[in-house]
Design a protein around this nucleic acid. Structure first.
Lengths: 138, 138
DNA sequence: TATTGTTATACTCTATAACTATA
DNA sequence: TATAGTTATAGAGTATAACAATA
């Protein structure tokens, strides 16, 4: 089949993102996490007492959609909530949450290494800056 | 906020893909198309009498999910179906579909140029081969 | 007046199973 | 026996509006 799409960087970007996301999802499912869960654990671990709203802004997730995500982590005993004032709540990892964060981190590091290894060496170190230019100048 | 995620190529890949997909979607909405519609018009235009199943394989879309996508294009008068044998139907662009394909192509070319222009020149030509290595060796 | 957390809801996209008919 | 097209359905993920309480 003639393929008029694959030579477009934007198309390949979407396809590569989908393919790699599926791979990471499969690896993270071994420890019962989704991608967004792992992102939240890493962010909360690096920013104790962060609020749900701030996490949503960081990850481009609507406030309303954070509720079930955090509820799942809380029900799983991975995070706790500290009232900061009458309205905001600071999120922190529990001991179990910290353990799971470390497991997720190991999986992510291995996954990222595998990604880079798949890229020919002469292109490898150009990927991150190119992607960041696309994303952060959007 | 401390950010433990953005230095990962895989994470930046997802973020860049989401950001750029939103941008292309906005541009294509000017001519009443979604991204997948444009992909289908380009593929059908380049492969007259292609089947729905073959398109699904090319784009990684389940056979069942092709049905409403193609129905929408057909209802919009952009594609026609030619019975190839008793079971397969070849898809072709109508005259309107060919016009719309050309419009979509112009939008996509402009979008892709804008993407590349946003990448620093020394990284620019490394993006496509790096992405293709990630996607096609998945 | 803006922000936080929340509920409810709708919409899109995707995945799965099943069925018919044909190659 | 495998493939094409289809239907129905369920599950994610996401977007929007609205509300109460607080900064």
């Amino acid at each position: 089949m003639h393929d008029p799409l694959s030579h477009y960087p934007g198309y390949s970007l979407r396809r590569a993102a989908n393919a790699t996301a599926a791979e990471l999802a499969a690896r993270l499912s071994d420890i019962g996490l989704k991608q967004v869960d792992a992102s939240l654990l890493l962010l909360i671990g690096a920013n104790p007492d962060v609020t749900a709203s701030a996490l949503g802004r960081e990850l481009d997730i609507q406030r309303a959609n954070m509720v079930p995500l955090l509820k799942r982590l809380e029900d799983g005993g991975l995070i706790d909530r500290n009232p900061l004032d009458g309205k905001s709540q600071g999120l922190v990892l529990t001991a179990d949450g910290e353990d799971r964060r470390k497991e997720a981190l190991a999986i992510i590091e291995a996954f990222e290494s595998a990604l880079l290894a798949r890229i020919p060496a002469d292109h490898r170190h150009h990927l991150l800056p190119a992607l960041q230019a696309l994303w952060r100048n959007a």
